[in-house]
Amino acid sequence: MRKKGQVSLFIILGIIIIITTSIVIIVKNNEIKGIYNEKVKGYINSEIQLTPLKSFVESCIEKIGYDSIVYVGKQGGYYNPPNNSIGNTPYYFINNKSTMPSKITIEKEISKYLDDQLFFCTRNFIDFPELSIIQEPSITKTTILDNKIVFNTKYNLKIFKGDSEYSLNNFNSESNIRLGVIYNSISEIIKDQTNNTDSICISCINNLINKNKIYIQIDNIDDQTMIFTVIDNNPSYEFIFANKYE
């Protein structure tokens, strides 16, 4: 009889524990959900606040990125042309050797220009008077693909609005300039040049033109120096370099 009473006591205790635990769990969940919802709401609120700013920055990256591609294109892939240049046009072939920069070099040059000039587009965010923004220098990683160029810019912004503080860090943009196609075409030209140092393979260039739908214009400065202008019409773009023949 005593034994039966103990068992009943344990059962009741167990039920109480279960109920209590359930209540605690339910309450906790609601709390978490509340916090989560608060956070999400806060997050969504900040996103809404920051969207124009993000768009603005990315449009600047797109614009300045385009300018940088055009600028370095006119200087053979360089922001600042190297010593081995004629005027602002670098030699890609001189002394019977290739001096063509790597794709990574050109990517870095584009990035350099972009990071230098981005400020002139963002203009200290004067278009966003309601925000107070602290910015760090941007660091862009440019990737040249065949049919586009991708900009990944790390641009740390701390944004203050009233009592709220937000941050934006990473921005992305693209340009549809076919620099990759152009670079690869030029690579083939230079590769042929190093194997045949005193002449230009016109039939090879014709194949490149047809395959890649580009134009190539070669202008001689003197008997030894040729300026190559690679022209794309879709979209419009020019890339210029020089070769010097012995």
């Binding site: 039939s203 090879c204 001689n220 008997d223």
Partner: peptide, 19 residues
């Protein structure tokens, strides 16, 4: 003139005749 077009095998090449 100063243009030299060379066909040799499977390529057409060009160079400026100098000097």
């Amino acid at each position: 003139g100063k243009i030299n077009i060379l066909k040799n095998g499977n390529a057409v090449r060009s160079k400026i005749i100098k000097n």
